[in-house]
C-alpha cells in the first residue's frame, strides 16, 4: 500500500502487453508470408498491418512511460488470477484439449460424458461428496445422450464415431 494516500498504487500492465506482442509477431509473420506475392495480395494487409504496428508502437510508448514513472509495473495482474481458481482453470484447459483430442478416439457421446463429468468435478467445491459426484455423473450422462440425440440422430452431424455410436448404429441403425 502506498504511504501517501494521494499516491496511486502501481498498476500491473504485463498482461496487457500479451495481445499487442502476439499481434506484432503475427503481423511480422504475415508480412513475411506475402513478401513475394502480387500487389493485390499485399495491399490490404500492408495497409492494415502498418496501422496496427503504429497503434501498438504508441501503446508501448505509453506503457513504457507509465512503468518508468512508477505508475505501472510489468506484473501479469488479472491475466491469470485470482490465485484460488488458477489450478482449476489449468485442469479445465487440459480437459478441454483432451476433449478435442479424445473425440477422434472415443467418439462424441463417450468423450462428452467424460469431459462433462470431469469438468464438473474439477470446478466443484464438494470434495469427496459421493452423492454430489453421483449427481454430476447422472447430469453428464443425460446431457451427452441428449447431445447424441440432437447432433447425431436428429441433425446427422458426422462427428467421429466411437464405441457408443457404433453399438447404437449396429443395434438400432441410428
Amino acid at each position: 500500500m502506498a504511504d501517501d494516500p494521494r499516491e496511486e498504487p502501481s498498476r500491473a500492465v504485463g498482461g496487457d502487453l500479451v495481445l499487442p506482442i502476439a499481434a506484432v509477431a503475427f503481423t511480422a509473420y504475415y508480412f513475411w508470408s506475402i513478401w513475394n506475392s502480387p500487389w493485390e495480395a499485399q495491399v490490404a494487409a500492408f495497409l492494415i498491418g502498418s496501422i496496427l504496428l503504429f497503434l501498438i508502437a504508441i501503446y508501448l510508448v505509453r506503457t513504457l512511460r507509465e512503468v518508468l514513472t512508477g505508475r505501472a509495473n510489468l506484473g501479469l495482474g488479472p491475466l491469470i488470477g485470482p490465485s484460488w481458481i488458477t489450478p482449476r482453470r489449468l485442469v479445465l484447459l487440459g480437459l478441454t484439449l483432451g476433449y478435442v483430442i479424445g473425440l477422434d478416439w472415443l467418439g462424441f457421446t463417450l468423450t462428452s460424458f467424460l469431459f462433462l463429468f470431469l469438468g464438473m468435478v474439477t470446478l466443484s467445491e464438494a470434495r469427496g461428496d459421493v452423492r454430489k459426484f453421483f449427481h454430476y455423473g447422472i447430469t453428464a450422462a443425460i446431457l451427452s445422450l441428449a447431445g447424441w440425440l440432437l447432433f447425431i440422430v436428429a441433425f446427422d452431424t458426422r462427428f467421429p464415431a466411437g464405441p457408443f455410436e457404433r453399438v447404437m448404429d449396429a443395434m438400432f441403425g441410428l
Binding site: L19, Y30, S33, I34, A45
Partner: peptide, 19 residues
C-alpha cells in the same frame, strides 16, 4: 488485430496463401 486475422487465407485474385 481482428482485421489482420481476418486477412488470413488465399487472396481473392491469385489465390496466394497469406498468413
Amino acid at each position: 488485430f481482428g482485421l489482420m486475422i481476418g486477412a488470413i487465407g488465399a487472396d481473392h485474385i491469385y489465390a496466394t496463401p497469406r498468413g
